[in-house]
Design a protein around this nucleic acid. Structure first.
Lengths: 107, 107
DNA sequence: TAAACAAGTTTATAATATAAACCAAATATT
DNA sequence: AATATTTGGTTTATATTATAAACTTGTTTA
């Protein structure tokens, strides 16, 4: 294929892009949990998802940077505690992601 | 976290792993098309997905290596033609992926 | 008082997705 | 009739990701 690949420009009308922030196993699991609760802490999310601390930490950061979750660091007694809560933006993005996904898995 | 991270072993019961072959935007789009038709050629898949030739070629290879699609190379007149068809294994994997995904996006 | 644990973060690495560059054959252009 | 362009792809290089290992800081426990 010489020169510019013309198809690069023509975006498919049939398949809208899947939000890359949400199209990730662990981040999706976290969002799935957070959508059903008021808030959840790091340890709980870790337990429910089965993720390692490192992976969870990184993915929470990404969700936070995207503005999909709010993270609030405090102490529970003497232990640090990281509380996570889904934002309105996160809720919208999640709903949109699910809609888009339906185009891919139909029915 | 010193030593081995214990949570590594405890797999989550709530979130089954998402088949990494299918959890990919382009491969999912391709499977989504192939599940609805008897067969589709490279050019058609490229048009429908909006993918570049290179990307499509690579992702078709992966689906083929996984045994999810069969690829049959022939000629249509004098032009080469790459026909793709979903296998039974692919159909099962797709159905399973959709089921698993429902755990993540519920309802 | 030192070893183990809790709650994370940082960093290194392996895997992925993606497009750019490439190729061979056919068709169109001068 | 030579050459340029298009068609239908493949290979390769690169940038991004996901992931776990290694590290940190403070707290229990032996």
């Amino acid at each position: 294929m010489k020169g510019k690949d013309k198809t690069t420009e023509e975006k498919s009308l049939l398949f809208k892009p899947l939000d890359p922030i949400l199209h990730s196993e662990l981040r999706l699991a976290v969002m799935s949990i957070l959508i059903g609760v008021e808030e959840a802490d790091f340890v709980y999310l870790k337990g429910q998802t089965g993720a390692t601390s490192g992976n969870l930490s990184v993915q929470l950061d990404k969700l936070s940077s995207a503005g999909y979750v709010e993270i609030e660091k405090s102490f529970r007694g003497k232990k640090p505690c990281t509380l996570c809560r889904m934002t309105e933006k996160g809720r919208n993005a999640f709903a949109q992601y699910v809609e888009t996904l339906k185009q891919y898995i139909q029915k």
